[in-house]
């Protein structure tokens, strides 16, 4: 976008990336463009607002008359009417055009974008990175396009990052996307902007923009849960993050898969008629080759986690199972 033409008007805001009277900081590559369009409309609006209010006030004072004054002569001026039809129309075409190009920029993620999966649930966000790491704040590298692929577990939410000037509803039953390229290291607010119930106003999070290299460090550290926590804790986190609990209950209630209540050391009858005791071997097989030994009464529907869970992850899950009495 040609920012030069109106640089005089917008210099104060496009030059720096700090917060201004109107705007939060410009921390993404598209923010400056969007602010520019905003100010373009802003100054048009200021012009017309001042013009109309001043004219109205002036007429009210200037043409004020006594009650018995004769009525004024009717006026008509087609040229004038055409003017104030055509001028706003032309301005509108420009605003539409700038709005359109800006929108297209913010809706066309570059092909090499870094993808983060986002899940909205009443009233928290969770962010899943390509390596399976999950966090409740969004961490991104600076100067790299990031594409968020989002869905909701319950009602409609909306992920809004004012500093990036980006927002998109997060809709249950489908994916929506938004992208940005942060150009400033720091922490910025994330808001939920689609009303989602009681704690809608507390469905907040942060986006942490890391400097070059720092992001990979953060990811390695965040991803390596085994160094941060005990095996039992790590196992508990893993089964939550990987959606195991969608099909396996912890309290004995029936679900798509067998319950995990008291699973360790339990005797299971298998679909082929044989039976076995749940031990390390069986758990490992069930995770990596779920169809091999299916418990009687359940369908062979579990997906494999081969390549998705590391050996150490499975060990942690086993340690966690031992605590489920």
């Amino acid at each position: 976008m040609n920012t030069l033409a109106f640089s005089l008007l917008t210099q104060a805001v496009t030059a720096g990336s700090e917060a201004t009277y109107w705007f939060p900081p410009q921390a993404s590559t598209t923010a400056a463009d969007i602010d520019w369009i905003y100010y373009f409309i802003y100054w048009i609006s200021v012009f017309f607002t001042v013009l109309i209010i001043a004219a109205g006030l002036w007429f009210m004072i200037k043409f004020r008359s006594k009650k018995n004054a004769p009525p004024a002569a009717a006026g008509h001026n087609t040229a004038l009417e055409v003017t104030w039809t055509v001028v706003p129309a032309i301005l509108c075409v420009f605003i539409f055009y700038f709005g359109l190009t800006g929108y297209m920029d913010t809706h066309t993620p570059p092909a090499d974008s870094y993808v983060v999966n986002v899940t909205g649930v009443k009233w928290a966000w969770s962010f899943t990175y390509p390596d399976g790491t999950v966090s409740d704040t969004l961490h991104v590298p600076v100067n790299r396009p990031v594409r968020l692929v989002m869905s909701s577990e319950d009602v409609i939410h909306s992920l809004f990052i004012p500093a990036f000037r980006t927002k998109q509803d997060v809709v249950p039953g489908r994916y929506t996307e938004e992208w940005f390229e942060a150009n400033q290291v720091g922490e910025f607010d994330i808001f939920c902007t689609e009303y989602c119930g009681t704690k809608h106003s507390e469905m907040l999070s942060k986006v942490v923009v890391h400097a070059e290299g720092d992001f990979t460090k953060w990811l390695a550290q965040a991803g390596n849960i085994h160094e941060r926590m005990s095996p039992v804790e790590a196992g508990e986190l893993l089964v939550k993050q990987r959606g195991c609990l969608q099909c396996h209950s912890l309290d004995g209630s029936p679900a798509t898969g067998p319950t995990w209540k008291g699973i360790w050391g339990r005797n299971e009858k298998l679909a082929d008629g044989s039976s076995l005791t749940v031990d390390e071997n069986y758990v490992r097989t069930s995770i990596l080759q779920p169809q091999a030994q299916v418990v009687a009464g359940y369908g062979p529907v579990m997906p494999t986690f081969q390549g998705k869970l590391k050996d150490r992850d499975i060990t942690a899950i086993i340690e966690y199972f031992k605590t489920l009495k």
């Binding site: 869905s151 489908r174 994916y175 997906p303």
Partner: peptide
């Protein structure tokens, strides 16, 4: 226009 966004979510959930 947005059916693919629904379809891919359905497929992801089915897995």
């Amino acid at each position: 226009q947005y059916q693919p966004a629904i379809q891919s979510r359905v497929e992801a959930q089915a897995q």
